[in-house]
Amino acid sequence: MLELILFYTFGAIAVISGILVITRHNVVHSAAFLGATLFAVAGIFLTLHAEFVAGVQVIVYVGGILVLFVFVIMLIAVERSVHERQYNKQWTIALITSAILIVEIAYGLYRGRDSLVLPAVVPPAAAAAGGNSEQVGTALYTSYLLPFEIASILLLVAIVGAVVLSKKRTPAEE
């Protein structure tokens, strides 16, 4: 019962602050709510007995990516961004597509309403397999080896691309 309450509390926090991230005018507030969302997701991982993933979630997203966001925010004039127009002319189309999406999700939820009460989470034999981190490692390097390697190559390409794009051109190259 406690796990169910925690799961839905974290879920609600994640969704509500997720909405606030895109509706707040002040970017600093948006960043703060993004932090709340990321923490709530880490909390959901914890209620599912995935301690390793929860820790990595906080390290990578809150301790890394969000810091970079805040770093950029400090460089821009926040006062101006508050008065900036938040939506452009495509908002009617966006509204229609998201309404359709919401109906779809609602229908999906309705069809699967029996599964809304989560089954009691059994810690997936963590002690037997030697702990949560070991299980993640084993899964990554055996069953999901190929997707894992493809993802790492993709990230490498993205990094190289970012370096190439942001590098200053010397006169000789032009």
């Binding site: 390793f52 820790g55 990595v56 301790g63 963590a126 949560n132 981190s133």
Partner: peptide, 10 residues
């Protein structure tokens, strides 16, 4: 914690 070191880094 079984992930104590990870917790500290986080």
């Amino acid at each position: 914690l079984s992930v104590g070191l990870l917790f500290i880094f986080a």
